[in-house]
Each structure stands twice: as C-alpha cells, then as structure tokens.
C-alpha cells in the first residue's frame, strides 16, 4: 500500500515535471507566432507602440491589402508549383539513389555516395555566378536549336503558334524548369543522406520476402522500401518543402520575370530599402506560413504512424 502510494507520487511528480518542461518550451515557440499574428492586425503607427499582443481594434483589412499589394495570387500558384515539383522530384530521385546506395551492389557506389556527402558539406557561396552563366548557356543552346528547327515546325503547325510556343519556352517553361532543377540539386544530397541512413537501419526481411514473391528491384523499391521509409520520406518532404517555399535568392537569380516568381517575392514588396511596412509584412508572412504549417500537419502524422504497421509484421 505504502509502496504503491510512493510509486504513484513519484510518477505524478515525474509527469508534472514533464508537463512543465513541455509547456515552457511550447510557450516560447508560440509567443513569436502570436506576436506575428498580433502585429499583422495593427497599423504602422501602433505596431511598436501598442504593447498588447492582440490589438483592441484589429485591422483585418491588412490581410486583404497584403494579398493584393503583394500580388500574392500569381506568386502563390508559382510557389505551389515549384514546391510540388521540387519535392516530388527530390523524393523520387533521392529515394532511388539512397536505395541504390543502401541495398544494391555496384562498383564505385561508396565513392559516389561520399561524393554526395561531401557536396552536402561544402557550401559554395561563390557559385551563383557560374550557376547563372551555366543556366544562361543552356538557354542559349536551346534557343538556337528551336530557331533552327522552327522552319520545319512552321510547315506542320501554324506560324504564330510556333512563335508563341518558342516564346513560351523561352520566358516561362525554361526558366521555371531550370529553377526546379537547381532547387532539386540543392536538396538532393541531404535527402539522399537522410534516406540512406533510414534504409540502412531497416530490416531486410520484408524485401527478401518480396523478392521470393517475384518482385523485381524497382518493384521492391516502390512496394516495400518506400512504404517502410515513410517517416523518413515525411521528414525530407517537410524539409525540402520549407526550403523551397522560403527560397528567393536563387529564384531572383534564375528567374527573370515577375510572372514566374515565387511567394517570397511578394513579401519583399513590404521591406523597402528604408521603409518596412511591418503590419502588411506580418500579414503576408502569416499567410505564407499557413501552407507550410498544413504540410507539416499532414506529413508529421506519417512520422508517427509510419513504421508501426510494418513492425507488427516484422
């Protein structure tokens, strides 16, 4: 009886200690978020003078203003496109490579993997110039090729259609694709590394079973390895999505017109050289953060549920 009570007391104190810790950390996390929300509802003159977290008369109109002034509509779609394309590309390419490095045998595999690792570690701050020159050269070659074949195309398609298509490729399709590939390259090494770590850790029994069932390598990758690595896939999805969503330096370097720019371009409007429109900036940032929070909410569930089903069998 006595021992039991002591046990319960110890457990209770332990539990309350855990909750106090969790709450303190959670509070520091939620405070800046609330501050951002609060500031987004103030005016430029009250944003730093009004100490209340949520103002008495909230300016909901800020959100509308931020959306229209920052021209978020176009940028939003662009960002959704870039993020989807890059994350999708990275998941496919990096999981194939990581699976190859982790499970399959071929000469040079170790060297190649360490090359990716090294690339992940060397930051190349000076590389923006060669990267820009490279992309520009590819564009030139592509354009020359298109102009060279356009006489033949004109015979098949109407002339203005060909012209428009070339213009479309030059101004829209090519810069967008180039940016997507650059961003895939940015996240690739790290994703391969994370995924390989998880693949290495996974038991091989299921794959063996699938092999006996007659699955080929690609089939095993897709039907066994990928579902099992779901927590890791969720991690790299969140990581890369956040990375692409918040990226703007490379975007401004590679993309050359407003219509192709991502969401961060909208936020820049509020941060002038001299004047920063804090309420609209905060409103814009809040709107920018929402999709990322949703992505996190969706994918973090996979981190948790992930492997438990597989483990039941194993």
């Amino acid at each position: 009886m006595d021992i039991n009570l002591k046990h319960i007391i110890i457990r209770r104190t332990k539990l309350s200690f855990i909750y106090v810790l969790l709450s303190i950390v959670a509070l520091t996390c939620v405070f800046p978020l609330l501050w951002m929300l609060g500031s987004s509802l103030k005016t430029q003159s009250t944003v730093f003078s009004d100490p209340s977290l949520i103002p008495a008369s909230p300016e909901w109109n800020n959100y509308y203003l931020a959306w229209t002034k920052g021209e978020f509509g176009v940028y939003f779609l662009n960002s959704v496109f870039y993020t989807t394309a890059v994350v999708f590309g990275i998941i496919i390419i990096s999981s194939l490579a990581a699976y190859g490095f982790s499970r399959l045998k071929f000469p040079g595999s170790n060297i190649l993997f360490h090359m990716f690792l090294a690339a992940m570690m060397i930051p190349l701050p000076g590389s923006f110039v060669p990267l820009y020159v490279l992309v520009n050269n590819i564009r030139k070659v592509l354009l020359e090729f298109l102009t060279a074949i356009s006489p033949f195309l004109i015979k098949i398609f109407p002339a203005h259609f060909v012209q428009q298509s070339i213009a479309f490729i030059q101004h829209q399709a090519f810069p967008r694709t180039a940016y997507v590939f650059c961003m895939i390259n940015v996240g690739l090494s790290l994703s391969i590394y994370i995924l390989k770590t998880f693949f290495d850790k996974m038991p091989g029994a299921l794959e063996d079973a699938a092999r006996i069932d007659g699955c080929n390598k690609l089939g095993i990758w897709r039907h066994v390895a990928l579902p099992l690595a779901r927590p890791a896939l969720a991690v790299i999805t969140i990581f890369n999505a956040l990375n692409v969503w918040n990226e703007y330096i490379l975007a401004q370097l590679i993309l050359s017109s407003k219509e192709t720019m991502p969401l961060q371009r909208g936020l820049i409007v509020f941060q002038g050289m001299h004047v920063t429109d804090y309420p609209l900036l905060m409103a814009g940032m809040t709107m920018t953060a929402i999709p990322i929070i949703i992505i996190y909410l969706i994918f973090q569930k996979h981190i948790i549920k992930g492997i438990t089903a597989g483990a039941v069998v194993g």
């Binding site: 194939l96 490579a97 399959l104 190349l124 590389s127 990267l131 390259n185």
Partner: peptide, 18 residues
C-alpha cells in the same frame, strides 16, 4: 540506373560551379 538521375543532376548543377 537507380543512382543515375541523381548523378546526372549532380554532374550538371554541382560539378561545374564547383
């Protein structure tokens, strides 16, 4: 073939700037 796409992208967008 599993590592080919990754190596290709790497070769184009990383090796040259490097």
């Amino acid at each position: 073939l599993f590592v080919l796409p990754a190596v290709l992208i790497f070769a184009i967008f990383y090796i040259y700037p490097f």
